[in-house]
């Protein structure tokens, strides 16, 4: 690993200024679980690391029945996994975190880092997009908010400008009769990066039979998390039926764009998308019917 200068701003504004000053030679450092690997491998040799861990405003999990859930960028995977507040309001997040990487990574790795790094083989983005999360971004000229979906541009590339910092993730309070299921699928060790990640979310009409909103979000099958919009359109506004789920799964399988790699061929991944959507949908549907204010 090459030497670098370590900077420790005390505020978001100061951090943004440092990023503006050093441009491409600087990189934000939080948990370091991904960055330290590429630095050790020699793929990335920043001259400056801007450690944002000392910035107090970036921590904490807050919940407000109206606004929903706010996660500071520095909230760790382990906090999501163990927070009683999360377990009460968004148990899906703590459940999935149990399977993310390993405990050492979960203790160090942060939510903000996970999203802003835009690693293609990861889990959180699919769930958060299915829950219609948005993010708050701070820059030298102030804050802006965008939907999480808009963050992802390409492998390891986001729409953040070089001097911007992701500061918060906002997950809206789920509408009544909402259920979500996520299946993390590994084609080798259970702690390997996922081969596929499939989130299915339904919000039902009052009849508990008709799908008002459907979200089918696929991970690891494209450079960015991918909404299977044809599958969603097929399910929305109609009665939930097993046959229709099968058709939607077939749509999802066609509309994703996996590449053949060490974790499976393109053909296999398409087949698995079909299987996983078919498996996740009925569970999401049952959860939506049994909705008690949490997902």
């Amino acid at each position: 690993m090459k030497n670098f200068e370590y900077l420790e701003p005390r505020s978001v504004q100061e951090a943004c200024q440092l990023l503006r000053q050093h441009g491409e030679e600087a990189r934000i450092f939080a948990g370091g679980t991904s960055l330290s690997i590429v630095m050790k491998q020699g793929f990335f040799q920043p001259k400056y690391l801007v450690n944002i861990k000392k910035i107090p405003d970036l921590t904490g999990i807050r919940w407000d029945p109206k606004r929903g859930l706010t996660l500071g960028a520095l909230v760790t995977h382990r906090e999501l996994e163990t927070s009683p507040l999360i377990q009460e309001t968004f148990p899906i997040l703590s459940q999935i975190e149990e399977d993310v990487a390993n405990i050492r990574v979960r203790v160090m790795g942060t939510v903000g880092g996970n999203l802003a790094y835009a690693e293609p083989l990861t889990d959180l983005p699919q769930i958060l997009i299915a829950l219609e999360a948005s993010i708050r971004v701070a820059g030298p000229d102030g804050d802006r908010t965008m939907s999480l979906e808009e963050l992802f541009v390409d492998y390891y590339e986001t729409s953040l400008r070089p001097d911007e910092i992701l500061t918060e993730v906002l997950v809206p309070t789920p509408p009544p009769r909402t259920g979500i299921e996520y299946i993390r699928f590994s084609s080798s060790s259970v702690i390997d990066k996922p081969c596929l990640g499939t989130a299915v979310r339904f919000t039902l009409e009052e009849d508990l039979e008709t799908v008002r909103t459907a979200r089918v979000v696929l991970g690891c099958v494209a450079p960015t998390p991918l909404r299977a919009r044809q599958a969603e359109a097929l399910l929305e506004g109609k009665r939930y039926e097993v046959q229709r789920v099968k058709e939607a799964a077939a749509f999802a399988s066609r509309e994703c764009k996996p590449v053949s790699d060490l974790r499976g061929s393109e053909a296999y991944k398409r087949e698995m998308v079909r299987v996983l959507v078919t498996r996740a949908a009925p569970r999401a549907f049952e959860k939506a019917r049994a909705f008690r204010g949490q997902v």
Binding site: Q41, F43, P120, D154, Y155, P223, V259, S260, D261, L262
Partner: peptide
Amino acid sequence: GKLGTLGDSVVRGKARK
């Protein structure tokens, strides 16, 4: 060389894109 070990999925995905 070095870039050959970057990661199969990323290299392939990028090439395809």
